[in-house]
Amino acid sequence: MSRYRGPRLRITRRLGDLPGLTRKSAKRSYPPGQHGQARRKRSEYAIRLEEKQKLRFNYGVSERQLVRYIKKARAQAGSTGTNLLKLLENRLDNVCFRLGFAPTIPGARQLVNHGHVTVNGRMVNIASYQCRAGDALAVRERKGSKRLATDNLEFPGLANVPPHLELDKNKLTAKVAGGCEREWVALEINELLVVEYYSRKV
């Protein structure tokens, strides 16, 4: 399944607040559709599926990509759920979003794909690039790139830059100091339910 390009508020009405997907808030608190207000008892499978969908839509990854991240997280030492969130938080598009270079993760993906960002002095246009500790990020030395990043920094998607990222607003540069801690993940999610969802599928 390809990346979602439909109405974003429709997703936030069903799944709740997704800070990476959009900054807008839905006027209605119930899911869309004819039966959106009907009270239904959700099964355990439905609850796990909803948590998985939150992760997918917030970070803008496809089902195939998410399965790959699950496999990588399992291969690493420690909690699979925490490892999964760290892998997603270390994506280049998400790092640009957390730094404030873009208002949302889809906006950050476009910023990266259009070649406005460099990593360690080299232009990288792959949104899924995994940032590592010590990587130096910067906005390219172009008038359009700098104006775009400066405008976005005035109204960032999230107010606080996490401590594992060091940002210099004047130079439009940043450094990845380490891995993201679980408490700094902006998305409200139970990652263990996502791992349980894939336990029988992967």
Rank of each mutant, 00 (worst) to 15 (best):
Met1Glu: 11
Ile47Pro: 04
Ala136Val: 13
Arg42Leu: 13
Gly60Trp: 04
Val161Asn: 00
Ala149Met: 02
Leu153Asp: 01
Arg68Glu: 12
Gln53His: 10
Val195Glu: 01
Phe155Asp: 10
Lys146Trp: 05
Leu172Gln: 11
Ser2Gln: 13
Asn120Lys: 07
Asn83Phe: 01
Pro156Lys: 00
Pro106Cys: 07
Tyr30Ser: 14
Ser25Lys: 14
Lys175Asp: 03
Val202Gln: 13
Leu84Ser: 00
Glu44Thr: 15
Arg142Thr: 12
Val124Met: 04
Val161Trp: 02
Trp184Pro: 03
Lys54Asn: 04
Ala159His: 01
Ala177Ser: 09
Leu55Phe: 04
Glu196Ala: 15
Thr150Phe: 02
Tyr45Trp: 13
Thr22His: 04
Arg109Tyr: 05
Val202His: 13
Asn190Pro: 00
Asn58Lys: 02
Ala26Cys: 05
Arg64Leu: 14
Arg14Val: 05
Glu51Asp: 07
Gly60Met: 05
Arg10Asn: 13
Gln130His: 08
Lys27Cys: 10
Ala149Arg: 03
Glu181Val: 03
Arg10Asp: 08
Gly121Arg: 07
Ile105Thr: 10
Glu196Tyr: 03
Pro106Ile: 02
Ser25Val: 14
Val139Pro: 06
Ala102Cys: 10
Leu92His: 08
Arg8Leu: 11
Val202Gly: 14
Ala73Val: 03
Leu187Trp: 01
Tyr59Arg: 08
Pro103His: 00
Glu188Leu: 06
Leu18Gln: 00
Thr150Leu: 08
Ala127Pro: 10
Lys169Ala: 10
Leu172Glu: 03
Asn90Phe: 07
Leu193Tyr: 11
Ser79Asp: 15
Leu172Tyr: 04
Lys201Cys: 05
Gly81Asp: 09
Leu9Pro: 00
Arg42Ile: 06
Thr173Pro: 04
Pro19Leu: 07
Arg3Tyr: 12
Met1Asp: 11
Ser29Tyr: 03
Arg122Ala: 11
Arg10Pro: 01
His114Ala: 10
Tyr4Lys: 08
Ser79Glu: 14
Ser43Val: 09
Ala159Asp: 03
Gly107Pro: 06
Gly78Phe: 02
Arg140Gln: 14
His164Phe: 10
Asn58Val: 06
Ile105Lys: 01
Lys24Glu: 13
Asn152Ile: 02
Leu88Arg: 06
Val139Gln: 00
Ala38Lys: 15
Asn125Cys: 12
Leu49Ser: 09
Val195Ala: 06
Gln130Glu: 14
Arg140His: 09
Leu18Ile: 05
Arg147Gly: 00
Arg91Pro: 04
Tyr59Ala: 09
Ala159Ser: 08
Thr150Gln: 13
Asn120His: 07
Leu9Arg: 11
Arg98Met: 08
Glu183Gln: 12
Pro156Tyr: 01
Glu89Leu: 00
Arg147Leu: 10
Gly178Asn: 04
Gly107Leu: 07
Ala138Pro: 04
Leu18His: 00
Asn113Cys: 11
Leu167Val: 11
Pro19Tyr: 04
Ala26His: 01
His116Gln: 14
Leu55Ile: 13
Ala138Thr: 09
Leu158Lys: 01
Gly178Phe: 05
Gly115Cys: 15
